[in-house]
């Protein structure tokens, strides 16, 4: 029972990260129809930028987090403008190639600046405590709480603000939105910025827990992709639910069956679900 609860706790923590990262990706994929395969690498970059402010410049954790979000938001705007917008109207596979080009670039960039060895920022909240017989660290709890707060915040942003409604309108019908005078390019840029800033947020919270390395983005990016597809392209509740499900599947599969094959469970689950429901859990009828 203890083991089970511990795995569930870990699963929820992983799931929180996955949910945030997938949330950002589903915005970009659903609204801009860009399969941004470099999303995991933007997360990686977010982690390093946090490291830079926290460890190198000595800013506090929260300030570093904020700085990282702002910088990654700007990176997102630049990426949308320079890489993806010129590709509008071309086959999706070209977006995919452009994303691969970007991720190769980002990984090489991190490698050139920070080197191949793993880096870790000192944990700002290393305290541990016992709850229901399982060990928790404050930082891990913080990840879970922050994810929940972000999800709630984003929900209000999408539902209650004009900008959120505008983004939703563009997602539903790009041409129609353009006709009603919405500046679609601006919305695209903002969406991208939100997407990358949330990735930076997730990375900042996890950087005291996990080692940063230039190659950490690849598998995470893939998982984010999987979650987005699992939940149905562009579906925000789908991404959140998918994120937590994946976190739990991994934690339980990894804990009870085989740690080496932890990822196999994640990827296998996706295949299983898509083979039953080819457009994802919350997917529209036709992709």
């Amino acid at each position: 029972m203890e083991l089970f609860l511990q795995q569930v706790f870990n699963g929820i923590m992983f799931g929180s990260t996955y949910a945030i990262v997938a949330l950002g990706l589903t915005l970009v994929m659903g609204i801009l129809n860009i399969p941004n395969f470099a999303h995991g690498h933007l997360y990686m970059l977010g982690g390093y930028v946090t490291y830079f402010f926290f460890a190198t410049l000595g800013l506090g954790f929260w300030l570093s987090l904020l700085a990282s979000m702002i910088i990654l938001g700007m990176v997102g705007v630049v990426m949308e403008r320079v890489v993806f917008r010129p590709l509008t109207g071309q086959p999706p596979i070209n977006d995919f190639i452009a994303a691969i080009g970007s991720l190769v670039f980002l990984e090489a960039f991190a490698l050139a600046v920070w080197g191949p060895q793993g880096l870790r920022i000192t944990n700002p909240y290393p305290e541990t405590f016992q709850f229901l017989g399982i060990t928790m660290t404050v930082q891990r709890v913080l990840v879970i709480v922050a994810a929940a707060a972000l999800i709630v915040g984003l929900h209000f942003f999408m539902k209650k603000t004009v900008l959120g409604a505008t983004i939703e309108a563009v997602a539903q019908n790009r041409e129609g939105a353009m006709l009603t005078g919405i500046n679609v390019n601006r919305v695209s840029a903002i969406t991208f910025a939100i997407s990358t800033a949330t990735a930076a947020l997730a990375a900042s919270f996890l950087s005291p827990i996990f080692m940063l390395s230039p190659s950490m983005g690849a598998i995470l990016g893939m998982k984010a992709f999987i979650i987005v597809i699992l939940g149905g392209l562009g579906s925000i509740p789908g991404a959140i639910l998918g994120g937590y499900i994946l976190g739990l599947i991994e934690a339980l599969g990894g804990g009870y069956v085989s740690a080496a094959y932890k990822n196999v469970f994640a990827f296998g689950a996706l295949i299983l679900i898509l083979s039953i429901k080819p457009t994802g859990l919350f997917g529209k009828k036709e992709a």
């Binding site: 994929m29 399969p35 999706p92 995919f96 598998i219 893939m222 992709f225 999987i226 597809i229 392209l233 080496a260 094959y261 990822n263 196999v264 990827f267 296998g268 996706l270 295949i271 898509l274 083979s275 080819p278 457009t279 994802g280 036709e286 992709a287």
Partner: peptide, 28 residues
């Protein structure tokens, strides 16, 4: 038989998953 039931991005991702699984199996 499984992946070709899906289309577009979905097909790309499902096949990518198979690719990653085989890679993990090869390593383990």
């Amino acid at each position: 038989l499984i992946s070709l039931r899906t289309r577009g991005h979905y097909f790309a991702i499902v096949t990518l998953c198979f690719g990653v699984i085989m890679w993990i199996v090869a390593g383990n």
